[in-house]
Design a protein around this nucleic acid. Structure first.
Lengths: 208, 208
DNA sequence: CTCCCTGGTATTCATTTGAACACCATTATA
DNA sequence: TATAATGGTGTTCAAATGAATACCAGGGAG
């Protein structure tokens, strides 16, 4: 048999573990698995064998002697980032304050590597429409990130929050919208009207 | 003290639990917490008190008498969906086949309610640019969903995969791009050139 | 036929674990 | 001043748990 193919019973065990973990928040014990797939409570040895098979075929990883020590290869929690969604950013000095935290959002590490210094905001306005950032979208913002030319940033201008593309000139900084209906905001370097909150690193949208 | 505010020690305990769960894949035992925050191994009673405080303030939920029975309010795994990323969709009858599964992606239930019959695809081409769907984006597709007029769909036309907005006319179906540089594809209802794979329900993009 | 893998049943055992007490110190609040 | 909340220490105990072992049966591969 192929090294990755599962027997019916093994599939059943794997599905049970996945489902248990997703609904309960932690992996099952051997006895919980036994019960879950309709085996007698005394019948842990069978479960042990199934788990050994699943591990050999690469679907799970077991941590020896640890209660509930089962990791799913398909669901690596270490690939997850929990990021707070901020409802309102309040102007303030020296740094703006985050208010109305709506909750948290789980983001795959495919989009965000590290949750440190990262927040999520809801997009208002159409100024970045042509960059594929629409009203209602959720943008993920890295706060303490190096800002490079042409980055899309979340900026405070005169106390207002806005998303724009940044372009540095000789003596000015341009905040460029990606929508011809909006104007470029030009700020002289010596003015104190601008505060760059962070860099937009991901965009999420739900449709329908 | 506010019902939600945490003391320094309580914060420390919560951070430890979060970090443990995310890196190890399952919550810690009381003794692991005790060790993790620098308490003696015998000192479980203190941890019990901290957990009780954290639960009272709504940050965690405990499942009595269960080893590692700690749920994080901020990280509800039940709010997570694990969706396969399909590298290539192969034309085939009666339904296309999914090949080159790149892996899985975790999606917050904020964007996808249910993982059943759901896949993720990478966008190629700019035909939906003005709908905020760009090349390289990941789109989430519901396979067995009711298709309504004006939905954005993944369609097979003459064996080619494409993302378009669907508009039903009297005797034809129009697949409308959201980019003036692309043409509308019109298909007569009696032709067998069209297969609707599913409906696009979410778009994800990484920037930079 | 023999060997290996799968799958189930039954039992034993050392550890681990959550829970419950008792006791103490500090600090903030009423 | 009294009271509650926080935070730490030490101990005991029943229950839960992973591991190991032995036994049995069927099927596929060589």
């Amino acid at each position: 048999m192929n090294t990755r193919e599962l027997t019916g019973r093994q599939k059943e065990v794997l599905r049970f573990i996945e489902n248990f973990l997703l609904t309960r928040g932690f992996p099952p014990t051997l006895r919980e698995i036994a019960e879950g797939i309709g085996l007698g409570i005394k019948n842990i040895a069978s479960v042990q064998k199934h788990l050994k098979s699943l591990e050999k075929k690469g679907y799970i990883k077991r941590i020896p002697r640890k209660t509930r020590g089962i990791e799913l290869t398909s669901l690596k929690l270490s690939n997850l980032n929990i990021i707070p969604i901020i409802g309102k950013v309040q102007a303030g000095l020296p740094i703006p304050a985050f208010e109305d935290v709506e909750g948290t959002i789980a983001v795959d590490s495919l989009f965000v590597r590290n949750a440190d210094g990262t927040i999520a905001l809801r997009v208002k306005g159409e100024s970045m429409k042509n960059a594929g950032i629409l009203p209602g979208d959720v943008v993920v913002v890295k706060l303490n990130e190096q800002i490079n030319d042409n980055d899309i940033v979340v900026a405070f201008v005169d106390g207002e929050v806005t998303i724009k593309r940044i372009k540095r000139k000789e003596d000015t900084i341009d905040l460029v919208p990606e929508n011809p209906e909006f104007d470029v905001i030009t700020i002289k370097s010596n003015e104190e009207r601008l505060y760059i909150l962070g860099k937009v690193v991901a965009v999420f949208r739900r449709i329908g």
